[in-house]
Amino acid sequence: MSDSETEREEAVFREAHQAALEALADVAPEPGVAKPDPILSATGVRRAFGGLVAVDVEHLEVQRGTITALIGPNGAGKTTLFNLLTGFDRPSRGTWEFDGRSAKRLRSYQMAQAGMVRTFQLTKALTRMTVLDNMLIAAPDQLGERLWAGLIHGMWRGQEVGNRAKALRLLERFNLADKCHDYAGELSGGQRKLLEMARALMLEPKMVMLDEPMAGVNPALKQSLLEHIKELREEGMTVLFVEHDMDMIHEIADWVVVMAAGQVITEGTPDQISSDPRVIDAYLGAHHDGAAH
């Protein structure tokens, strides 16, 4: 791809992002509000652990091509909601659509194949494999992953070379290229977060779900992670991420969804959210004697 082509493509994405922002500008800051072009739309999703209702979301839509932040106090059900939407957990009831397709019955690996790829709150690096192998394993549609084809190296070597080039490009972007032959278990916690994100991008997903991508990452690295997440939007991906730091959210999020006690209590742009009394209530507990009452 030539530089001018890349630039043109980026301009297209910036325009798309601008359009998405404009679309969101007309959306009312109410929980469960409909979006003009949702990539993800969930209805009545409920998950109970014994007596504890961890998630009970009436309706939630995520606008395509935006960065949406999911916030809420500890134990609000954010991770559980991620697990449900990505097929890692089964809901007690509820339905959801991803990219126009009912996704309720899909298993976790099928969700990933359909284009929704997640990362984990507790990073899952494949420790006794090299950084490069961590990347290569994620490449989609590999012929050599079939048992019979694995035997015949000539059949997949070409594809492997292509995947390797793609992996190295991504590692370069995430400043991990010089670590590519190290074991993933030798990386620091922050580097593992970077690796996990780079690895998710090997699948060329439509939507990435990042569970606290910046937890435990030093401020300098945080800044570069933020840039990486913005780049994803520029490439046309939709990002839903969990984060606790409001400054970070102000910097990159187009839209914020607030959860508390399993429910979506409010949604809106970062500015609308930071002035919403319900959010303060949720974080400080409903019975505080704040000015909101």
Partner: peptide, 22 residues
């Protein structure tokens, strides 16, 4: 082969391998 790589990935962390569409 890539097949063997998936096996080793499963040994390391099968949830992670699942999240990558395998």
């Amino acid at each position: 082969s890539p097949w063997g790589r998936v096996l080793k990935g499963i040994r390391e962390d099968e949830e992670a391998v699942r999240s990558l569409g395998k």
